[in-house]
Design a protein around this nucleic acid. Structure first.
Length: 828
RNA sequence: GCUCCAGUGGCGGAAUCGGUAGACGCGUUGGACUUAAAAUCCAAUCGGGGUUCACCCUCGGUGCCAGUUCAAGUCUGGCCUGGAGCACCA
């Protein structure tokens, strides 16, 4: 065995052998229990970045560890390959998005293989290939049949730079998630998925996910935004038979209403406007349309509005109050109208102050009454000025008042969600075409399943500006109606790429099936994913959509489970010099360079070593070198062992051993136990790696003390080094394999069983007893493991130091913590 | 404003149940080897004070203030700071 460690040569060689031997193929039929380890699949942007390296290394180590523990592990990879960057690149360079995408996939595949990842490449999926998007379209049709896909005219988010609409989830701070441009509102007819129908399930089933972080779960819960309240319907005084319904979470304040607000886009607003007010209202509405989302939704903005001239009647009091329009009411939420109680709502208060509208206090804290002149009182309290409800606690009044409305026929209890339906149409080329046609006679007609896939046309002109390139195709638009065979035109929009990524994890179970989306038995056998690993940026988007898809497909009879991802690990970002790696900051580290200079094993080891997976990780060049040195140290231990004849082909030793050898064997067992627990317990790879180092240090120390090794020593030494190599094998996949073979083994170390430990050996023969006086450490004594509590107490009390400290003092009590510590409580 | 997460040496971070705070590493300093360098190895490294000064003793220390306890980084209450998410959602 060479004395020097040459990772590049070793890594290339083993990668080739593994590929030839099909080492990481996953059989569908196996006696072993299944384990599905999954990384969020990449967008083929061109090259891997360190975030990918971290993500895939974490999942790979988990997959390998589980495999060694005896599971049949599914660990697949694929490409989320539809999307704007390919199309933008095509427009810029006049290339074909398909070609651009294929080239990127080819390059990144090479990089993934260089990282030594244990993927079953036979299950690779690529969402932009017809054999995949055929099934994306097929699933769309299933949702359509279920009434979960529908088209409607709505106020939607429009990104002018990307030239397409966006889902609510893709608007961050009023800006496009991709290009950061300010998003506008447009009224367009678009395709939606009815995710709101699953709002309650999506919320409640979060409780079925103890393996998800609280941060992700609360983000989803907040996004769904369930609230309890009431609908009240107010008669319009001036218009016979006309009513304005409002949604409120504060029915208890209904006696304090002094005006009512409808959104500028409210459907009946023109009817509700008197001729005298028409001009002002029209101007206000036009102005609101012009404003961006950001301007409109800014909370710091001074509220504005104009009166409509009409009035509503409060059915609880008979009072009349004016109707206004103001853009602080949102047309998409609730009923689009708000009952305003300035005394008990800060927004209504601000508005009422500005326009000098009346206020009426109806809730009061009896101990500290407020007149609500300076600010709204939004806390709990007792009702006043509320007729028969006076004196009631407001929490109880919510129910009582709503009940009165129910009984009177002018209201009901109502649960409301913030979640909106998922807008999936995109006015872009590089996506899965929505498989519907518009027939001159039959209207909207879904494409027949046997006609799938609806192929993306290739005769398109990418140089067009201001419209989707797909519209330039001469072959795509005109078609025949599947029902009447008459003339029809195809839907020109494609699907949001998040639709493609909402089901890819299902396709891996049966990736090559050309007859079906997936085999039902296979999908139910492999799913749910046992461990999903990816970035926190998908906390709402991809993870919420996938959960919705799973539930919807379950209801279509395609799946037997409710939740796709049993455990979720959201890995932290990879930072450099304290900030996120990015091209614009110029602080990126190229994985290729690291592979070339240090090898993939060093990269894998380092990316796991310094921080727990969920935390951000600061890349440091010194840290990489430190890991490289450590691997050299392990390599030397093995190569010197072989070259000196200290490594035996098989080890074999029996107890009792000499003291030092016994200690080393115990150290190995302690390491096996610790490393196994650390991986099993939230994948604490940073402490796993520190334990690799501790074990390595211990073996070095032991050998340093021994000098020449005798027969028993060689057996123990071989056991120790071989255990170390095996424990490291999920991380340093190539080096461990190389050393394993140098030690004379014929099989792959990756087919080996994980190391086991003996509980009796996984502890030191001696323990350090800590002796405290009044809770402060005063002395430490080496004692044999397994002494009784009484014996420990006696030992503690009999040391010179403790005798001195306790002399002449009263010992109040003595607490013994078995195998650890004695605390002596003294007085005086 | 609301919600969640975090706060430990010069740095990344350790510390099952409340039981030796700072594992392991990075960095720094000193030393060995060497003509020299690289590599490697050894040692020191939370702060203040003391001392008979390689040992040792003592006090303080996990964002802040209280509390529970024989014992608190860990539990409880109240704050402060940073990060993330949501935000005119009635």
């Amino acid at each position: 065995m060479t004395e020097a460690y040459f990772p590049q040569e070793i890594e290339k060689r083993w990668q080739k052998i593994w590929e030839e031997n099909n080492t990481f193929h996953t059989p569908d039929n196996s006696e072993k229990p299944k384990y599905y380890a999954l990384s969020m699949f990449p967008y083929p942007s061109g090259k891997l970045h360190m975030g990918h390296v971290r993500n895939y290394t974490i999942t790979d180590v988990i997959a390998r560890f589980k495999k060694m523990q005896g599971f049949n592990v599914l660990h697949p990879i694929g490409w989320d390959s539809f999307g704007l960057p390919a199309e933008n690149a095509a427009m810029k360079h006049g290339a074909d998005p398909a070609k651009w995408t294929d080239e990127n996939i080819a390059y990144m595949t090479k990089q993934l293989k260089m990282l030594g990842l244990s993927y079953d490449w036979k299950r690779e999926v690529t969402t932009c290939k017809p054999e995949y998007y055929k099934w994306t379209q097929w699933l769309f049709l299933q949702l359509y049949k279920k009434g979960l896909a529908y088209k409607k005219e709505a106020a939607v988010n429009w990104c002018n730079t990307c030239g397409t609409v966006l889902a609510n989830e893709q608007v961050i701070d009023g800006k496009c998630w991709r290009c950061d441009s300010v998003v506008e509102k447009k009224f367009l007819s678009q395709w939606f998925f009815k995710i709101t129908e699953y709002a309650d399930q999506l919320l409640e089933d979060l409780e079925k996910l103890p393996g998800w972080g609280d941060n992700v779960k609360t983000m989803q819960a907040n996004w769904i935004g369930k609230s309890h309240g009431a609908i009240f319907r107010f008669k319009v005084k001036e218009i016979e038979g006309m009513e304005v319904p409002v949604y409120t979470t504060r029915p208890d304040t209904v006696h304090g209403i002094t005006y009512l607000v409808v959104a500028p886009e409210y459907k009946d607003i023109e009817k509700l406007t008197t001729p005298e007010n028409k001009q002002a209202v029209e101007e206000y509405r036009a102005n609101a349309r012009k404003m961006t989302e950001i301007e409109r939704l800014s909370t710091d903005r001074v509220k504005t509005g104009v009166p409509l001239g009409t009035h509503c009647i409060n059915p609880f009091t008979g009072e009349e109050f004016p109707l206004w329009t103001a853009d602080y009411a949102l047309v998409e939420y609730g009923t689009g109208a708000v009952m305003a109680v300035p005394t008990h709502d800060t927004r209504d208060f601000d508005f009422a102050k500005k326009y000098n509208l009346p206020m009426k206090v109806v809730i009061q804290n009896p101990e500290n009454p407020s007149d609500c002149k300076d600010e709204a009182y939004t806390e709990e309290g007792i009702l006043i000025n509320s007729n028969e409800f006076d004196g009631m606690k407001n929490t109880e009044a919510k129910t009582a008042i709503t009940q009165k409305a129910v009984d009177g026929g002018f209201g009901e209890f109502k649960t409301q969600y913030r979640l909106r339906d998922w807008l999936i149409s995109r006015q872009r080329y590089w996506g899965a075409p929505i498989p519907v046609v518009y027939c001159d006679k039959c209207g909207i007609v879904p494409e027949k399943e046997e006609n799938l896939p609806v192929m993306l046309p290739t005769d398109v002109d990418f140089s067009v500006i201001g419209k989707s390139p797909i519209t330039t195709s001469k072959t795509f638009k005109d078609t025949t109606c599947p029902i009447c065979k008459g003339h029809a035109t195809r839907e020109m929009d494609t699907m949001d790429t998040f639709v493609c990524s909402s089901w890819y994890y299902l396709r891996y179970t049966d990736a090559r099936n050309s007859e079906k989306c997936f085999d039902k038995d296979l999908v139910n056998k492999w799913l749910p994913v046992d461990q999903y690993v990816g970035g926190i940026e998908h906390a709402i988007l991809h993870l919420l959509y996938s959960r919705f898809f799973t539930k919807a497909l379950r209801d279509c009879g395609l799946l037997d489970f409710d939740e796709p991802f049993k455990n979720l690990l959201t890995q932290g970002m990879v930072l450099k010099d304290g900030s996120k790696m990015s091209k614009s900051k110029g602080n990126t580290v190229d994985p290729d360079e690291i592979f070339e200079n240090f090898g993939a094993d060093t990269a894998r080891l380092f990316i796991l070593s310094d921080s727990p997976p969920a935390r951000d990780f600061d890349w440091s060049d010194a840290g990489v070198e430190g890991c490289y040195k450590f691997l050299n140290r392990v390599w030397r231990l093995a190569s010197e062992g072989i070259n000196n004849g200290d490594i035996l082909k098989d080890y074999n030793f029996s107890f009792p051993l000499s003291r030092e050898n016994d200690d080393l064997v115990r150290t190995v067992h302690i390491a096996i136990k610790g490393i196994t627990n650390d991986i099993s317990n939230d994948f604490q790879f940073n402490t796993v790696i520190s334990k690799y180092r501790e074990l390595t240090n211990a073996i070095y120390d032991w050998r340093g003390k021994k000098g020449q090794l005798n027969g028993e020593d060689k057996n123990v030494f071989t056991f120790a080094v071989e255990s170390l190599i095996k424990l490291m094998s999920p991380v340093t996949v190539h080096m461990s394999e190389e050393i394993w073979h140098e030690f004379g083994h014929e099989n792959s170390i990756h087919d080996e069983k994980w190391c086991e430990w003996d509980e009796n050996l996984a502890k030191a023969s001696k323990i350090t007893l800590v002796v405290q006086v009044n809770g402060k450490v005063k002395d430490k004594v080496e004692v044999d493991e397994g002494l009784s509590d009484d014996k420990l107490k006696q030992t503690a009390l009999s040391t010179d130091k403790i005798k001195e400290l306790t002399a002449g003092k009263e010992i109040v009590k003595t607490i013994v913590v078995p195998k650890k510590l004695v605390n002596i409580v003294i007085k005086g």
